[in-house]
Amino acid sequence: MSSATSTRQAETVERVFAAGLAELRQVGHEALTVRSVAARAGVSPATAYTYLASKNHLFAELFWRHLAVTPAVEETGSRVERVQAAVRSLTTRIAEEPALAAAVTPALLGSDADVERLRLRIGAEFAARFEAALGDG
């Protein structure tokens, strides 16, 4: 695969996810379809399904991406204060996108294999942040 092809694919993926978030904000998680996301992204439904197994997969991926850019908590203060700051940071970040929070909750409870992989990554991210807040010892 050429670098132009992989660059084009990466751009397409980003367009699909950006369209997914915009569509979610506009119509909500119940009305959203992968077809409507594809139309908003300017790609065919088949192309969208190349990157998304389902709308639950979309919601989990959007949540993961949203969570992954949450800033790390400073390493000052007591362990309790650092854990409190980590929880505050994560909950604030989640509350910034109420439509996404509403969509991801039922999505993460599903049995879709692609969602399960993301659920594990999301859980690992939470655990890593709490471990970092707790520090050594």
Rank of each mutant, 00 (worst) to 15 (best):
R8M: 12
G28R: 08
E131Q: 09
T12I: 15
A133S: 09
R25M: 15
V37Y: 05
E96T: 14
Q9I: 15
L90F: 03
E96A: 15
G20H: 04
A60V: 02
T50Q: 14
A124S: 14
G28K: 04
S89R: 10
T33Y: 06
V13W: 05
L21Y: 08
T50Y: 12
S6C: 07
D136E: 15
A39C: 07
S2R: 12
A99M: 11
A18L: 08
D136K: 11
A107M: 06
A48K: 06
A39E: 15
T5R: 00
G135N: 09
T91Q: 14
Q26P: 03
L134S: 14
H57R: 00
R129K: 13
V104T: 05
A103W: 04
R129H: 01
A18Q: 13
G123R: 10
R40D: 04
A31D: 08
F63D: 01
A85M: 08
L134I: 15
R88L: 12
A18V: 11
T12N: 07
G20Y: 03
A99D: 14
Q9W: 10
T92V: 04
T76A: 10
P98Y: 01
D114Q: 09
V115A: 04
F59D: 11
R82G: 07
H29V: 00
H66L: 06
A133L: 12
Q84E: 02
A31W: 02
E131I: 11
